[in-house]
């Protein structure tokens, strides 16, 4: 195992372009689990980002909230301004592990670890975030919505680094986030869903129900139609199942069942829509 310790972002870009097999690491909460027994991970070359001050900031522009790549969940949990404007970020962050993990885990790390169960990603998707990738060749912005290609596959070239997550500042009439896990804290999601409504635009993103965390376009259309009184009114959770089945493809695994994930996603959305008077 080799660790590369860049002093600056420029160093980091150079190291990444020199060796395409390098794995960037921030908080390490995913990468270092079961470390002593993990031979594959131990033979990897890591690029340690923890020393790069440039990636540490969380800042506001007129139109965006910008999370630097080293922004942790805890940074967000303790930020009153984020809580006021993007409450779902705080809600989601508080449900990642517990305080020890929140202190180390980063939003950017959660994105590039690319777990289908990633807890930070649904809310970012629902808030329409963009991933900024940096490299020696410059900067590229990719909507998070278009970032994932397949299970653990994403549109990050090996020489690129996520440097920022940019979240547009918009007015939302509604925003929900629901995580369902085996217990309240320290839980891996069985099914999760984040929803925002801005005007007539619905954004719905779900995790643990597909090879990647994903937007749910059929559900979005369906909900927008129902809300706009253009569709049939909802009478039961099963009304949502056709849309769910066209959007996601849950599986049976060690953490839950496909049937449960599908049913619970339908039920959560149904009751959330009901609560909202939709």
């Amino acid at each position: 195992m080799t660790i590369l310790l860049p002093g600056t972002l420029t160093d980091a870009y150079r190291m990444l372009s020199d060796d395409p097999d390098v794995t960037p690491v921030a908080g390490g909460t995913d990468l270092f689990a079961h470390w002593p027994e993990n031979r594959v991970k131990q033979s990897t070359t890591y690029l340690d980002l923890s020393g790069l001050a440039e990636l540490r900031s969380m800042r506001w522009t007129k139109s965006e909230l910008v999370l630097g790549a080293l922004t942790t969940y805890w940074d967000v949990v303790t930020d009153a301004r984020v809580a006021a404007e993007f409450p779902n970020l705080v809600t989601a962050a508080r449900q990642v592990g517990a305080v020890q993990i929140q202190a180390r885990g980063t939003w950017a790390g959660n994105i590039v670890n690319a777990s289908p169960a990633a807890d930070g990603v649904p809310v970012l998707l629902a808030y329409d975030a963009t991933v900024r990738l940096g490299s020696r060749d410059g900067v590229e912005d990719i909507p998070l919505d278009e970032f994932y290609l397949d299970y653990k596959k994403m549109r990050r070239r090996p020489d690129q680094l996520v440097t920022e997550i940019r979240i547009p500042r918009r007015t939302y009439q509604r925003a929900w986030f629901e995580k369902v896990g085996p217990r309240k804290s320290q839980a891996i999601t069985k099914v999760g869903v984040a929803v925002t409504v801005a005007g007539e635009t619905w954004r719905i993103a779900a995790n643990s129900v597909a090879p990647t965390v994903c937007r749910c376009p059929a559900l979005e259309r369906y909900c927008a139609a129902v809300a706009g009184a253009k569709g049939q009114p909802l009478t039961s959770p099963s009304d949502l199942l056709p849309a769910i089945r066209s959007d996601v493809s849950p599986i049976d695994d060690i953490r839950s069942t496909a049937e449960y994930r599908e049913q619970v996603l339908a039920r959560i959305l149904f009751h959330a829509l009901n609560d909202a008077g939709v």
Partner: peptide
Amino acid sequence: CGEGECGACTVYLDGQPVNSCLIP
């Protein structure tokens, strides 16, 4: 546990509680 679940290895890093089993 060696995977950041149990917290028995909690130390402070710059004042913040963290799992020392997950920190290189």
